[in-house]
């Protein structure tokens, strides 16, 4: 990993030094030994703070939609293959301009969660060596996604009756405290005024009541259908441990099955809810 760290620092130094970018978004050592923090590097001297290790789990693309990064003319960003999927989503939806973002891609053998386990996104990873970037560091890592890993959590859900599923989700969603951490951390929750904050009319009740909790979590997953790149940031951020990725992955499975579409693959394609085919599945419409 250290050569990757050195590679990132070198490129960041160069870009910051020659004015290619105003700043570089990357990871640095966190307060605790086994954690990293996002960092905004503005000078070549600071570049040595950047690093890459198996604790660089977070997707930094979410900073592209926020100030001060959003307003910068040129910004560098360090990204794993999976993070770049979010960038592709943002490009598709015109939220960033390709010329403004310079990507330091890093090959990645996989990262770890806070508890030391391997996240599903790494077990199912098909972009250990990124293909969309400006510069790349690290030796090539072949991808061998574990068959079935991506949707394995859905099997238990599929096996339930609708009533059991509803009870399961009641149990989970009733916990929601409506802190919207899932939304804030999501690189693809791009609205400046979330539907949950619209009050005329108020489609989604704002109080943390089961009624509004259900609507909110449903709407969140719906609005990410065909857009979610499965970075797991929402689930990681959730303070009450709602298994949000189950919903997101269920949507990913639907979109793959119905429209043969996967989010974050190709910036030239249309997200599925922005297009249609004349021969889309019609079987369920009576």
């Amino acid at each position: 990993m250290s050569d990757r760290t050195e590679g990132i620092r070198e490129i960041a130094r160069k870009w910051l030094g020659d004015g290619t970018v105003e700043a570089v978004v990357g990871w640095e050592q966190g307060t605790y030994k086994d954690k990293t923090s996002p960092v905004l590097i503005r000078t070549p001297e600071e570049a040595d703070r950047l690093l890459f290790n198996e604790r660089c789990t977070n997707n930094l693309m979410t900073y592209l939609k926020r100030e001060p990064v959003r307003g910068m003319e040129k910004v560098g960003i360090v990204a794993k293959g999976c993070d770049i999927k979010a960038l592709i989503g943002l490009l598709q939806e015109s939220q960033v301009e390709r010329e403004k973002v310079k990507v330091i891609a890093v090959t990645c053998p996989g990262v770890k969660k806070d508890d030391g386990t391997v996240p599903v996104k790494c077990r199912a990873c098909d972009v250990n060596t990124p293909t969309f970037y400006d510069e790349i560091v690290g030796e090539k890592v072949d991808s061998s996604p574990e068959p079935g890993a991506r949707f394995e959590g859905l099997e238990a859900l599929d096996a339930m009756t609708p009533a059991e599923r509803f009870r399961f989700w009641r149990g989970e969603l009733d916990k929601c405290i409506r802190c919207y951490a899932c939304r804030q951390v999501c690189p693809l929750c791009i609205c400046s005024r979330c539907i949950a904050e619209k009050n005329q009319p108020q489609w989604v009740e704002t109080s943390p009541h089961p009624r509004g909790n259900f609507s909110w979590n449903l709407v969140r997953a719906y609005h990410l259908a065909g857009r979610c790149v499965e970075c797991e940031a929402c689930e990681t951020a959730c303070p009450v441990n709602i298994p949000l990725m189950l919903l997101n992955r269920a949507m990913a499975r639907t979109v793959k099955g119905a429209f043969d579409y996967e989010a974050g693959k190709d910036p030239e394609t249309q997200p599925p809810l922005r297009a249609f085919n004349l021969d889309d599945d019609n079987s369920f419409i009576l």
């Binding site: 015109s94 939220q95 809810l273």
Partner: peptide
């Protein structure tokens, strides 16, 4: 115009 974020979904559909 205050809340539009220029994702162009409307334009495409």
């Amino acid at each position: 115009e205050n809340t539009c974020i220029a994702c162009w979904y409307c334009l495409e559909v």
